[in-house]
Each structure stands twice: as C-alpha cells, then as structure tokens.
Simulated scan of single mutants.
Amino acid sequence: MKDFFKYLTPGEEDKQWGIYLNVVGTKHTHPDEEYPPKGHPSGYFFNWEKGRVLNEFQVNFITEGTGDLETKDGRFLVKTGSVMLIYPGMWHRYRPRGKTGWAENYIGIEGEAVNRFLSNPVLNPKTPVVFCGLKESLLDCYYNIFELCKKEKPGFQQIASGYSVRLLGSVISMVKNKDFKGKNIEITIEKAKFLIRQNIDKETNIKEMARSLNIGYSYFRKMFKLFTGVSPGQYQLQLRILRAKELLLTSDKAVKEVAYATGFDSIYYFSRIFKDKTGKSPSEFRKE
C-alpha cells in the first residue's frame, strides 16, 4: 500500500457511538530519511528534542525496520512485528533507526468505549511496546480501516471502529498469551480444554484431571484462569450450558434428556443452573 495519512472530522453521531477515529495512516521511512515527515497538524507533529503528548490513543504497527520509543518510563526497542501503544496524556517520542528506517501503520482513536478498553489491566503504559510478530490479521484490520477512511462513505466511522476494536482485541489477546506460547503449560492447558470438551456429557473431576496431566491442582487452576479468563470449573460449566442451548433449540429431546446429555444428574439442578446463567428456564428458552 502506498504511503498516505488522513485526519478525520468525526461528527456528534460518531462520538455518541463510543469509539471514533481521528487519524489513520501508513508510512515507509527509508534509511537516514528525515523523521517525522512534515505536513502534519501542530497537535500531531513533533521533533525528537521536545516529543509530544496526545489526547487520543494510538496503535502503531511496525511491519519493517527497527526504532526506539521513549516515554518517561524509559526507552523501548521497537522491532519488526512490534505494536506501539501511545496512551492519552503520555509524553513520548519515537523514531526509526537511521540504518534501517521502518514501515508503520497507525490509527488514532477516542471515545467512551476506548476509555473502558484502557481500564483493562493488560494495557499498561509502563510497557508501551508489544511484540506481536508479523500477523496478517493485524495488517488486515489496518488495510480495511484505511480503505474505509479513504472513501468516507456514510457510516464508515462505525464500520472502521469495529475493525479498531478487533485490532485492539487481538493485541490484548497476544499480550495475555505471550507467557504461555510454546511452553509446557500451554500444551497442558490445551489438553485440559480438549478433555473437558470431549467429556461434556459427564461431570469431569478437575482435580483428578490435573493429576492425570501431572500438574498440581492449585497451579493448574491458577494458570488455566490466566490462560482462558475463567476457572476450569466455570469453563466446563459454560461449555455444558452452551451445549444444552444447542440441544434445546435443535432437537426434540425432553429437558430431562438434555440435562443428562450435558452431564447433569438432576433435572432440578440443571434447571436452576441454566436459569442462573441465561436468565430463563430451559422450557422458556426453548419457546423463544
């Protein structure tokens, strides 16, 4: 894609949506080329000596080259496959290294939804560089956003904001999983998830399963929750309720049969848990 940047003027309807884009762009900076390039508004342009502070959140994906990002918390290496997260109100400066240059893809977003995203503990201004690797899924988000913003057809902000959420969600997921990738614990948790899903029609004893996987229960439970966001027991229950929903909607099985097919020995316990999780009894859910 050719270099370009575009500053957008979101309307009140865009702002009420909860997330909107202010700027998008892509730039290939050649070795020893002046940086940053001229032509940006005063609120965005900066030099290395002074740096800058933005009011928006920027997500900058580096797909070629190497550089440095500096904040008040230190200097961070930015290499191919890195994502720079520039937080609102954070003093910063960055640039490619002269010998390599770099290729960057960036968006600047604001809104109430963005503020909620930034409250996620995974997003930490003290670690503003995340290494994601050259993920096609990330680049696809940027390219879709760029095409939408170039044309500015009615409703483009809403569609582009959806890709922005997908982009940010992908980055958060990569941050959460970086401590697991390629390690034995990741393999163990994937085996556990497989066993739970495979035995969805019966009550799985999580402690016994951990023992069969040669891992201590307390450590297994802690790492499973870090990996999936829920405990092993809740993960199992969510799968069973999901399967129960499918059977209620797609089969003629009686509620009692659905309960047994998803590992519940008591129809009364099944009905109570189902209502707790869905807000409706199995019979009410089936009627809708």
Score class of each variant (00 low, 15 high):
46 F>Y: 14
32 D>N: 15
56 E>C: 13
59 V>N: 06
59 V>D: 05
48 W>F: 07
52 R>T: 15
37 P>R: 10
87 Y>T: 00
27 K>N: 11
65 G>W: 12
43 G>W: 14
60 N>V: 14
75 R>H: 02
50 K>P: 00
28 H>R: 12
40 H>V: 04
86 I>C: 03
34 E>Q: 06
69 L>D: 05
30 H>I: 01
71 T>K: 07
31 P>A: 01
35 Y>D: 08
79 K>I: 09
82 S>D: 15
81 G>H: 00
64 E>I: 01
57 F>H: 08
75 R>S: 12
87 Y>K: 05
55 N>D: 15
69 L>P: 01
36 P>E: 11
28 H>A: 03
72 K>C: 12
40 H>T: 00
42 S>W: 12
78 V>R: 02
55 N>M: 11
65 G>Y: 12
38 K>G: 01
63 T>H: 05
56 E>I: 07
67 G>K: 04
67 G>E: 07
47 N>A: 00
41 P>K: 02
45 F>L: 07
66 T>L: 13
44 Y>D: 12
70 E>Q: 13
82 S>G: 10
87 Y>H: 09
24 V>I: 10
58 Q>M: 10
82 S>C: 14
44 Y>A: 05
82 S>F: 10
29 T>R: 01
35 Y>L: 00
79 K>C: 02
78 V>W: 09
60 N>E: 15
85 L>R: 10
56 E>K: 15
76 F>A: 01
61 F>T: 04
36 P>N: 11
41 P>Y: 08
41 P>T: 00
56 E>W: 15
84 M>A: 13
75 R>A: 09
28 H>T: 10
23 V>W: 12
33 E>A: 08
57 F>V: 02
35 Y>Q: 02
51 G>W: 06
53 V>D: 08
30 H>K: 14
63 T>F: 05
48 W>D: 14
75 R>I: 13
82 S>R: 03
40 H>W: 15
70 E>Y: 06
44 Y>V: 09
56 E>T: 14
66 T>D: 15
31 P>G: 04
87 Y>W: 04
73 D>I: 09
38 K>D: 13
60 N>G: 06
36 P>C: 08
36 P>I: 03
65 G>C: 13
45 F>N: 09
73 D>G: 09
48 W>C: 01
61 F>N: 07
55 N>W: 08
49 E>K: 13
56 E>V: 12
75 R>F: 03
49 E>N: 11
65 G>S: 14
52 R>I: 12
34 E>Y: 07
77 L>G: 05
43 G>R: 04
52 R>M: 13
87 Y>F: 15
63 T>A: 00
49 E>P: 00
58 Q>N: 15
27 K>T: 05
51 G>L: 03
46 F>C: 00
55 N>F: 05
69 L>R: 04
61 F>Q: 04
65 G>I: 11
77 L>R: 07
47 N>E: 08
33 E>L: 01
41 P>C: 04
59 V>E: 09
39 G>R: 08
66 T>A: 14
77 L>E: 15
85 L>C: 05
72 K>D: 14
44 Y>C: 02
57 F>I: 01
71 T>C: 08
37 P>T: 06
87 Y>M: 03
77 L>H: 11
54 L>K: 12
86 I>Y: 06
74 G>W: 04
40 H>Q: 12
80 T>Y: 05
83 V>E: 03
71 T>E: 01
59 V>K: 10
64 E>H: 15
46 F>P: 00
23 V>K: 06
45 F>R: 10
42 S>I: 07
27 K>E: 07
53 V>P: 09
